[in-house]
Nucleic acid binder design. Structure first.
Lengths: 194, 194
DNA sequence: CGGTAAAACGGAGAGTGTCTCCGAAACATT
DNA sequence: AATGTTTCGGAGACACTCTCCGTTTTACCG
């Protein structure tokens, strides 16, 4: 009694639907990078060659679209955690990952305000992205704690907040340098007392 | 030849103008605190009992209004620096001021994205507020460096960026706690290398 | 005081963005 | 090819931003 198939059960997703979804995602990614998180969604729809209705059906809110756009990027960051952990000593790995995070935001022009939702509200939307990112930093921190290089009571989430926060202030020209200096300060400040 | 008064020279500002300006400021402050930095300015104008044109004449941009609204708040923070410096040892003063900053943002619901402009762009608008805030933290850091409790090469601006950044991520419920833990980490990480 | 020029007011309206609704079109399935 | 479902798309209702300019208010002067 596990699977009935009396009625057509599940219909294959229509190809035009899938195609449009992809196209929207592609255009949106570029638009967000170019003009920030406030790009006109109608514009995105137009450039993707679909009607506004189509865009809003696929992504009911601006946040939903942002989440979808950065989903793959987030996955890459999570993957980097595993790599770094494998080839670097605990603290170094943590540091390297944080630096990577900064670079990522700088390069891809990911809009930090959107990231807020990762550590922020109870939005179901970001659930999976948040899980990936916080999973990554938690693993890194846990390993560093175990090795004795980081204080036992450090909350990985605090570090994530700091990281996102620092990346938020991205207007100044030397932002990236400043962010990296701060990563070092954060790590230094997270060492065991003495 | 210091003061001519051939022509009417300077006219006293009209009382209605001053009154309206005050009223707008008052309403805007409340509105920003209640509904964030994106409140409808037309609404603000309506609630202040003036036309949209009046609001925009006094404050040409949303940022200008924000700046004006928080001008006095910023002044208070700057004043606190002097007080704390007078009654606490260098690092303690720095720490206390940073904590105060966090509290301030939490309590007054100051919209952090607006603060970005303080450390950010070359906007002439925020010039005075920025000067006050960065002056405060620079003084605190300089004193702490002189006392030997903080590393010589620490950039006060970095610290300010971190502070604003961390305050930015204000969605989580335990945000304030997290922010304060981070302040401690930042200060610890800014100590001399031994 | 009353007159007058200068300054401020205010709201209509043009431009733009958001989001919904529903008839028309495209699709998977039989 | 017919059928019934899913998706499309863009017109349109609504909201917000910001400007323009005829009208009103005010400070100043005689």
């Amino acid at each position: 009694m596990a699977k009935k198939r009396a009625q057509p059960a599940v219909r294959k997703t229509r190809t035009d639907a899938a195609r449009n979804r992809e196209r929207i995602l592609e255009v949106a990614k570029e638009a967000f990078a170019r003009s920030g998180a406030n790009t006109s969604l109608d514009d995105v729809a137009r450039q993707a060659g679909v009607g506004a209705g189509t865009l809003y059906r696929h992504f009911p809110t601006r946040d939903a679209l942002l989440e979808a756009v950065y989903h793959t990027e987030v996955a890459k960051l999570a993957a980097a955690e595993r790599e770094l952990s494998a080839k670097l000593p605990p603290v170094e790995a943590l540091r390297a990952w944080m630096m990577l995070f900064v670079d990522y935001i700088a390069e891809k022009h990911i809009i930090a305000p959107a990231l807020n939702s990762f550590v922020g509200g109870p939005s179901k939307l970001y659930e999976s992205s948040r899980a990936q990112i916080s999973g990554a930093i938690e693993a890194l921190v846990k390993r560093a704690i175990k090795s004795g290089d980081i204080r036992k009571d450090l909350d990985a989430f605090d570090l994530l907040r700091a990281l996102i926060g620092v990346s938020n202030v991205a207007s100044a020209p030397d932002w990236q340098q400043s962010a990296k200096r701060l990563v070092d300060i954060l790590i230094l400040g997270s060492r065991p007392i003495r």
